[in-house]
Amino acid sequence: MQFNATSRSVQGSSASRRLRRAGRVPAIVYGGDAAPLSVELDHNEIYHALRKEEFHSSILSMQLEGKSSQVLLRAVQWHPYKQQVLHVDFQRVAAGQALHTKVPLHFVNAEASPAVKLSGAIINHVLTEVEVTCLPNDLPQFIEVDLGNIIAGASIHLADVKAPKGVTFPGASDIVIATAIAKPGGAAAEETAAE
C-alpha cells in the first residue's frame, strides 16, 4: 500500500492547527539511520487508508518528493469525538533489520467446530492481534487461527498457532487467544428438559 506525503518545515501546535484547518495532517517519520522527518499528509487520503486493516499491519510505501520510502505505521492520534485524524507516527523500515509489531488474528472454522455445532458454545476472542518479530519481507498481513477442533470449555493458546515462515511470537506462549464458553442452558440443559 502506498500514500503521499509532503515535507513540512514549520512545527509547533499552532502550525499543526493551521494544517488541520487546511485539511492536512501532521506526521513524523523516525527510525533507521536518518534523523526524524516532519511531514504532512492529506486528511481524506490517510483517513480512508486507516480504515483498512492491511494499512495497520503492512509495510507501506511513502511517496515523498519523488522518492519512495518503506515505513510502518506506529501510532495514530484521533480527535476525541470528531472523525478526524490529528497526528500519525511512522517508522522507517530497513530490509535486514527485524521488526517488532502487532498483526491481526483472523479466526476461521468456528461454526464448524464441535464446540458450536454440538454444544452450542460461544467462541470468545480474547485477543484480536498478536505481537510478532520478523524481517520486513516476512511480515504477514494477518495470522489465521483455525478453531475447527475446539470443544466446549476449551481454550486455544498462542502455542497452538502455527507461526508463518520467518515469524516468531516473542513473550509467553501460554497466552489464551480464544475460548469456547458453553451457554448457560445450552444443549446439555435441553437434553435434561426433554427427559
Score class of each variant (00 low, 15 high):
residue 1 M to E: 14
residue 2 Q to V: 00
residue 4 N to L: 08
residue 5 A to L: 04
residue 5 A to H: 04
residue 5 A to S: 06
residue 6 T to P: 08
residue 7 S to P: 14
residue 7 S to E: 14
residue 13 S to Q: 13
residue 17 R to G: 13
residue 21 R to V: 03
residue 25 V to F: 09
residue 33 D to F: 03
residue 36 P to Y: 08
residue 39 V to E: 04
residue 39 V to Q: 05
residue 39 V to L: 00
residue 42 D to L: 04
residue 44 N to L: 03
residue 52 K to S: 06
residue 57 S to I: 02
residue 60 L to I: 12
residue 60 L to R: 12
residue 62 M to V: 05
residue 63 Q to R: 11
residue 65 E to S: 11
residue 67 K to L: 05
residue 68 S to C: 05
residue 68 S to A: 01
residue 70 Q to N: 13
residue 72 L to F: 09
residue 77 Q to C: 06
residue 77 Q to E: 15
residue 81 Y to A: 11
residue 83 Q to F: 00
residue 84 Q to C: 12
residue 84 Q to R: 10
residue 85 V to C: 12
residue 88 V to A: 09
residue 92 R to L: 04
residue 94 A to C: 11
residue 96 G to M: 00
residue 100 H to E: 11
residue 100 H to K: 03
residue 103 V to F: 03
residue 106 H to Q: 12
residue 107 F to I: 10
residue 108 V to I: 02
residue 109 N to R: 14
residue 109 N to E: 15
residue 111 E to I: 10
residue 111 E to P: 10
residue 114 P to N: 05
residue 117 K to R: 08
residue 117 K to F: 05
residue 123 I to S: 09
residue 125 H to F: 02
residue 127 L to E: 06
residue 130 V to I: 06
residue 135 L to V: 13
residue 135 L to M: 12
residue 139 L to G: 04
residue 139 L to A: 06
residue 140 P to F: 02
residue 141 Q to I: 05
residue 141 Q to E: 14
residue 141 Q to N: 13
residue 142 F to V: 01
residue 147 L to F: 03
residue 152 A to S: 03
residue 158 L to D: 12
residue 159 A to P: 15
residue 160 D to S: 13
residue 162 K to S: 15
residue 167 V to P: 11
residue 169 F to V: 01
residue 169 F to A: 05
residue 172 A to E: 09
residue 177 I to G: 10
residue 180 A to K: 04
residue 183 K to M: 15
residue 186 G to M: 15
residue 187 A to G: 10
residue 187 A to V: 14
residue 188 A to V: 15
residue 194 A to K: 06
